[in-house]
C-alpha cells in the first residue's frame, strides 16, 4: 500500500508529506505534524472530540482520511486565535462561563461552536443544543457550554 503525497494547510501552515492512504486525518494532525490539541474520543464518529474545520466547515477528523484533506485547509483549536496569546471569542466565552472541566471534549466543542455561530450568529438555546448534538461532554452537563455559546454570540455581536 504505497504512500501518497499530500499537501494540507493546517492552521495556516502548509504541510507537504506522504501518508498511507488509510491514515486518519486526526492521526495525521496529532502524530505526523504534532498538532496534538485535537483529540480522539471514540471509534464510531459519535463523540466529536476530534472536530476541526475543513475549508471552514466542521468535520470529525476521525472520519476523514488524511488523503481526503489533500489540497484543503484545516483549522484546529490551536489555530483558532490569531497570533500568540490571543483568544477567540468562543474560547473567551468558555472560560468566562465555565464551559469546560476536564477539557477533553473542549477542542471539538469549541470548533463545533465556532461552526454553529458562523451558520447562525444568534442562536436560541434549542438551536445551540441541537447544533452541538454531535459533541459529547461527560463533565459539564452542557449547561455552561450552552451559556458559553450564548455569551460568545454576544461577544461576536450576534446577540442584541
Amino acid at each position: 500500500m504505497t504512500h501518497i503525497p499530500i499537501s494540507v494547510t493546517v492552521d495556516g501552515t502548509v504541510y507537504d508529506v506522504e501518508v498511507e492512504p488509510r491514515r486518519l486525518l486526526v492521526h495525521f494532525l496529532r502524530e505526523d505534524i504534532g498538532r496534538v490539541g485535537t483529540v480522539v474520543g471514540c471509534d464510531t464518529s459519535n463523540c466529536g472530540a476530534c472536530t476541526v474545520l475543513l475549508d471552514g466547515k466542521s468535520v470529525k477528523s476521525c472520519s476523514v482520511l488524511a488523503v481526503q484533506a489533500d489540497g484543503h485547509a484545516v483549522l484546529t483549536v490551536q489555530g483558532l486565535a490569531e497570533g500568540e496569546h490571543k483568544w477567540h471569542p468562543v474560547q473567551e466565552a468558555f472560560k468566562e462561563c465555565h464551559g469546560l472541566q476536564c477539557g477533553y471534549c473542549t477542542p471539538g466543542m469549541v470548533m463545533a461552536a465556532v461552526d454553529l455561530l458562523q451558520e447562525n450568529p444568534n442562536p436560541s438555546e434549542e438551536e445551540i443544543r441541537e447544533g452541538l448534538e454531535g459533541n459529547l461532554c461527560r463533565c459539564t452537563g452542557y449547561h455552561n457550554i450552552v451559556k458559553s455559546v450564548e455569551y460568545a454570540a454576544e461577544l461576536m455581536g450576534g446577540k442584541s
Binding site: R35, V36, G37, V77, Q91, F94, L100, Y104, T106, V110
Partner: peptide, 14 residues
Amino acid sequence: DARLLHGQTNWTDN
C-alpha cells in the same frame, strides 16, 4: 482553562 481552550494540553496519548 487557558491551556485547555487553546489545545495546549498534555494528554498521555500526546
